[in-house]
């Protein structure tokens, strides 16, 4: 029996919470089994905060490190969402990030 969108929305939300992504800045929904996320991706975990402290001396290095960290998070988030039972696919409309057709993530220019 297919899972209802209502239930799948809660599953997707939990996956995002588990990744320490701020759900207050996202709209999370599931339509026809397809996860639909739009808004801003902000990681709230202490690891990111530590990184910001550690590399505060050089903005370029920090940006590079953060970009890598966000890319890994988005990749993992996408994988976890797609692998959730009942989810058929995912559409992401993030302010600063875009999923490429090859499955990677690129940061949109400011």
């Amino acid at each position: 029996m297919p899972q209802s969108d209502f239930k799948l929305t809660s599953i997707v939300r939990r996956i995002i919470v588990q990744m320490n992504i701020d759900i207050n800045q996202l709209n999370i929904s599931v339509i026809n089994g397809v996860a639909y996320l739009d808004g801003k991706i902000t990681k709230t975990d202490p690891h990111i905060r530590k990184m910001k402290n550690e590399y505060s001396y050089d903005n370029a290095v920090l940006e590079k490190k953060l970009e890598k960290e966000y890319k890994n998070t988005l990749k993992m988030m996408d994988r976890n969402i797609i692998n959730a039972p009942g989810v058929r696919g995912a559409v992401y409309k993030f302010e600063k990030w875009e999923k490429t057709s090859a499955g990677g993530w690129i940061k949109k220019p400011d």
């Binding site: 339509i31 026809n32 089994g33 397809v34 639909y36 058929r88 696919g89 995912a90 559409v91």
Partner: peptide, 10 residues
Amino acid sequence: SEISIGLWDH
């Protein structure tokens, strides 16, 4: 692409 993924099936 969104049609192919099923977002607009309804």
